[in-house]
Design a binder for these strands. Structure first.
Lengths: 194, 194
DNA sequence: CCGTCGATGGCACAGGGTGTCAATTGCGGC
DNA sequence: GCCGCAATTGACACCCTGTGCCATCGACGG
């Protein structure tokens, strides 16, 4: 019950923030403007989000664990390229399910350097998760064997490339098609034994 | 003459900042502490560096253009994997030439999230440069053909992986050997026609 | 000796983020 | 209905980053 209210307030803050950022841009939008639009106090804002950037970044919060969980759920015998394609597909599905919301956030992040930086930092955490999961699947030691890490890096590179092209196409391109095209380029490296 | 003095002052600020960050960590080191150690005023600090993070990031400033220039200088007929390996090698050379300074900076950046994020953002700019250069070499259009972009992403992924492992090895591992190992993983994807 | 120009320092201010404390709200027990 | 308890909120003070503005100082040429 308290949890529900908390999510509701967070959603209101997020909506107000995205609305303002879409009009004024992220950097010129102040926290004071956001809290006024959301009808809360400045102090409360920072109880819901650890920083102004956090409002945008939080929207991608579950993607990392979702991708990792999907990778873990894939059949054990599946080749890395296929398993990683499905894992990344989970994140892509979010864009397909809610294209308007997703596109708005992705474009805001990609055209705001500080948000882009934070997203890349978060992606590095996703990579760690995928690396470990992949190492377990393949029975390799990620400390001495670079293949799980490099495979995770390549998969996320494909993901990011697909997101970028989807963003510049203004949502016109099919995210899954873009992802397939990107994965076609890294496939030969993922299927090798390493 | 004014240029020389400027570089000298910048070097002093950098040295003071790195010294303090090594002891106290980046986040808990304030600009006031740095300027006091460097013997300058707070205002002057921000005339030399646009932000506190800039002191650390600026040390990687030339890597992007250096890699791009090296890629441009490689023979036209050279396969992408070889050309990119040499381009990244330019950056690696800096680590080999001055291992103590480089390792200190790399470790500081990698263990400070906000600096890591800024470096990744800067890496994205390097990628754009490499992508364009690669597209020219291969006679492909990067807007419709993802291969140049994906190749640049993979090369930088290998670079980052090598830097990471070099950092955790505390400089014990040979950066070029690590880079070779990482490039061995992406080679099959770079040598294909796309 | 004087005027100019660039570098510097000091100051005030906006904005992000945090600690602290009082007021409010909501809820269960009596 | 009333009381006490806990959680949430709001308000204030504060630190830190970053910027605009202006006074100052020093070098250099006229």
């Amino acid at each position: 019950m308290a949890q529900r209210k908390r999510q509701l307030v967070a959603a209101e803050i997020t909506e107000a923030a995205l609305q303002l950022c879409a009009v004024k841009g992220f950097d010129t939008t102040t926290v004071d403007e956001i809290v006024e639009a959301a009808g809360i106090s400045r102090r409360t804002f920072f109880r819901y989000f650890s920083s102004k950037e956090d409002v945008a970044i939080q929207l991608l919060a579950s993607l990392g664990t979702d991708m990792r969980d999907e990778l873990r759920a894939r059949p054990a015998g599946e080749p890395p390229a296929t398993a990683l394609r499905h894992a990344v597909g989970i994140a892509i599905d979010h864009c397909v399910d809610e294209p308007l919301k997703s596109l708005r956030v992705v474009q805001l992040i990609l055209r705001t350097p500080v948000l882009h930086a934070r997203m890349l930092e978060r992606q590095a955490q996703w990579r760690e998760g995928l690396t470990i999961e992949l190492a377990v699947r393949l029975g390799r030691d990620p400390a001495t064997d670079m293949f799980p890490e490099m495979a995770a890096r390549m998969a996320l590179a494909a993901f990011e490339a697909a997101m970028l092209h989807w963003s510049v196409s203004d949502g016109a391109a099919d995210p899954h098609v873009l992802t397939d095209r990107a994965f076609a380029m890294i496939g030969p490296a993922l299927d090798q034994a390493g």
